[in-house]
Amino acid sequence: MTRATPIFAVLLVIALPLSLVAGRVWVDPGTTANAIPILAELRLPRAVLAVVIGAGLGAAGAAMQGYLRNPLADPGLFGIAPGAALGAVVALYIGVASAILLPLFALVGAGGAMALLALIAGRTANPANGIALFTLAGMMIASLAAALTSLAISLAPNAFAMSSIVTWLMGALTDRSWQDVMLAAPLTLAGLALLWLAGRDLDALTLGEAAARSLGVRPGRLMALLVLGTGLTVGSAVAVAGIIGFVGLIVPHLVRPLTDRGPSSLIVPSALAGGLLVLVADVVCRILPLVTELRLGIALSLIGAPFFLMLLLRMRRGAL
């Protein structure tokens, strides 16, 4: 355990109750009318959901960066998030986007992307090519899913369908219920467990693929853990919240300096810090005095893209 784990755990425990009172309406449990139903049925599920998807995205980012040995890797690059988005967009396109069917379609999309990724990258004659093949396959699946999503938007039957697709793609946690938590939480927890199991193998990969295999790492098992773990965490996040980018990229960088920098020691604190980041970002979206609420996906991209550029500049100076 690194000191990052207790730090982010304590911050999360402090931030979660505080986040409940913040919003367009500031709730004081003592005086505000209907305080209990607002907190229990609106704010609490929304806060819990923010923590759940943030945890999944943060841990998936940490695991992906470890797997690809690249600090600029983001789980969104590997087809699973775009696949889930495509599934949801299909549901919106054909007009069956109920509170249950839309996430289910998204999960089917994520599962399809995972299966495709495993099918292409899973069986390779030369195990030394495994990770390169995985990356390329993931990027191609991401491009294909994005192209099909654009196709669905351009062929949308009416303006309402088009605008609901575009809005949904921006990602948000507005009006989410316990039902969404029930869907996302178990899948995310299962995914987190798989990513955690991959930690030891990811540490071995620090010294390259050949050294890792000589240390007993089975590349097929590791890829399966990664594909399933990211698929469950990222897939369920997209299913309930739409595309929330950059969390998986940023969070491991915030956590890394507080750890020994080995991939396995990043996974748990990245989950906690990811939950914290999405929770805080969602509160900021709620309290900004705009005419309509800022979409969470846009807010995180507004923070994330400059952060990414800063990383590139630091990398250019060799300081990463």
């Binding site: 071995a204 990969l205 620090t206 050949a210 050294a211 000589s214 240390l215 920098r261 080995g262």
Partner: peptide, 22 residues
């Protein structure tokens, strides 16, 4: 292996500890 690859800026003790993974 021939490559002296060390992907993350881990400590020498952490590198040596990887030898205990098996």
């Amino acid at each position: 292996p021939q490559s002296a690859e060390i992907a993350w800026d881990v400590s020498v003790a952490s590198i040596a500890a990887l030898g205990r993974l098996p």
